[in-house]
Every structure is written in C-alpha cells, then in structure tokens.
C-alpha cells in the first residue's frame, strides 16, 4: 500500500489507538512475573497506559511480556504461544534472564529469548522494578504509534 495523505492520517489514528490499548498476554514465568503483577496493582497502575487487561488467552493479546527465565523445556511452548497471537504483536523481554540468560549461563536455560521470538524492547534488571516495565511499555507505545497501518513490513 502506497503512502498518501489518506493512509498517513489513518495510520496516525490507528497507531494512536493501538498504542493506547496494548493488551499483554498473562504469561508469567519466574521472579519477574511477580514484579509484573506488582505493575498491575494500585501502586504503579499499568491501567494508566491502557494495558491493565492481561488476557489469559494469547488469541486476545497484542503483547507478550516474557517475564523471567525461559528453560529449554519451556521454549517450544513459548514459541507456540507467540504463534497463536494475532498480528500485529510485540514482545517485551523483561529482565536479565529473558534477555541474555542472566546469572544462569548453563545447559538448562535459553540464553536470551530473542533466539526464538523477535523482541521489541529489552528491560535490564533482575528483576526490573515495576517502573522499568512501565518505561518499556511507554517506549513500545511510541514505537507502535510510529509504525502506522502495517507494522513489520
């Protein structure tokens, strides 16, 4: 689809809509999942950014927050869940373990979730503070808003 006045304006509108209603998949793995829950509670309140609707089904979600270490046994399941999510979809790799394997450099863990799914935003920390997750979400929102009608092309 070519770029013209109509599609760029529509793209802005769609990007604004998508960016402010990112629904994460409820997909907790390890320690970071607890901080992810803390992000959803009253103190930090992810609802301010339109992302409080953690969906239990990947079919209803736009964002996968990989919150914690991914073991070799879990990796195929994580990929299945990612494949089940409808386009457009984004991934936040939360914490050192999900991003690089963290302190565990061994046989059992996937050394970085970006080996099996494309990652949009990485968060350092073990586990990151809830504010870090909010910051990552805001970076992602900016990116979604800039992507227009057809992300990932």
């Amino acid at each position: 689809m070519g770029q013209n006045i109509l599609t760029t304006s529509l793209g802005k509108l769609i990007g604004w809509g998508r960016g402010n209603s990112v629904w994460p998949a409820q997909f907790g793995l390890a320690c970071c999942a607890i901080e992810m829950i803390a992000t959803a509670t009253a103190g930090v309140d992810i609802a301010r950014f339109g992302s409080e609707a953690f969906r239990a089904s990947p079919r209803q979600s736009d964002l996968m927050i990989v919150s914690g270490r991914v073991s070799q046994k879990m990796a195929p399941i994580l990929r299945t869940i990612y494949d089940q999510m409808p386009e457009p979809k984004w991934v936040i790799s939360m914490g050192a373990c999900a991003s690089t394997g963290g302190v565990f450099n061994n046989y059992a863990l996937l050394q970085g979730v970006d080996k099996i799914v494309p990652v949009d935003v990485y968060i350092p920390g073990c586990p990151p503070r809830p504010e870090d997750l909010l910051n990552a979400l805001m970076i992602l929102q900016e990116r979604i808003k800039a992507q227009g009608i057809t992300p990932r092309q």
């Binding site: 793995l29 390890a30 914690g68 270490r69 073991s71 070799q72 046994k73 879990m74 399941i77 302190v103 565990f104 450099n105 061994n106 046989y107 059992a108 863990l109």
Partner: peptide, 11 residues
C-alpha cells in the same frame, strides 16, 4: 514439572 528448570544446582 520442569518447565522452569534453571540448573541452579549445577550453576
């Protein structure tokens, strides 16, 4: 079980 096996004892 084993979906979160981290290899902590080996580490």
């Amino acid at each position: 079980i084993g979906y979160l096996h981290t290899g902590i004892e080996k580490q």
